[in-house]
Design a protein around this nucleic acid. Sequence first.
DNA 1: AGCTGTGAACATATTCACAGCC
DNA 2: GGCTGTGAATATGTTCACAGCT
Lengths: 184, 184
Amino acid sequence: MVSSANLAEAANLNPAKVRKDLSYLGSNGIRGVGYDRIQLCYEIRGHLGLNQEAPVVIVGAGNLGSALANYGGFSSSGFYIVGVYDLDPSRIGTTINNQEIQHIHHLEADVAHHKVTMGVITTPPGAAQDTADRMIAAGIRSILNFAPTVIQVPEGVDVRRVDLSTELQILSYYESRRPTEQAS
Amino acid sequence: MVSSANLAEAANLNPAKVRKDLSYLGSNGIRGVGYDRIQLCYEIRGHLGLNQEAPVVIVGAGNLGSALANYGGFSSSGFYIVGVYDLDPSRIGTTINNQEIQHIHHLEADVAHHKVTMGVITTPPGAAQDTADRMIAAGIRSILNFAPTVIQVPEGVDVRRVDLSTELQILSYYESRRPTEQAS
DNA sequence: AGCTGTGAACATATTCACAGCC
DNA sequence: GGCTGTGAATATGTTCACAGCT
């Protein structure tokens, strides 16, 4: 069992906020006792839609694509990597994390067969738009774009662009605002 | 020149919010006209601390470390990569993006010499804590941790943990909430 | 005329504080 | 006794609306 005070401390939050937020998932705490960890995890994962495995494809088997295919948290968060695709013949047929890299022309059939709705773009910037077009034509409706390019998509397709340098900028912002530690 | 209405449209925001936010940087718009793009960029970059180059080190020259070292936006956002470090002899001496990968034992001297305050951890999870300890001992005060591990740091050191699967989870959440498109 | 800067109005988020249950 | 669930109180964030400058 875990109390709202425990959770609040771990997350640097106010206990009342923890309780109020959890109450939106339906009341699953026990008064005088706290929350059951197992049930709570299940409840939260359910609300986030992580209890059923979602199939994804990764296009671009460079360093970033390989890193994602290997990323432990990726598969453990309820995602199932249907395939990793590339154009470069020297990469095709090699394996990353037991995934054989496929030629991009396998994309359409795989997406259809596994009913894939989400795609990850880890290509060089120049290839990102073409990749997105191809994904969308194949039936993908949600795209995670790691390429440093803004891609155009039709109405109804959802894109999230992730810029890896943003986090460093945030860190740097706090770093630049530190009170200068000076001997007095 | 660009108006708050232009910016608001591009960012999917209310014009008043744009104006209010920009007003916190000091009033640099011209009434009846708008904001000067050049000056605005300069002003914003200045406030974010991106006008001076900040030195960073990357420890872990695997796929993710390599991807970061190559990442265009990384260096163009005002960061200067002092060095990329690893333990694996087969990686040391190879180059990524004109950076020769160094043995980790060069870390301390490089951090001191370039007055590095920020470090990026892209090691396997098992090595993350040791890496952090070593960075902190060398004088680093802000750490960006891509390894899927929670690391312990002393008071006064700032850590940001980045989980690459979080963005996919967010995308997946919206995907799961889509109104089901059904022929009527 | 057209757009900024900003107080006032409104909306949303967080915290308090306590009744209710175990 | 101890912890949840939640209305009421407070704090924060957003938008309106308009005076004031160019």
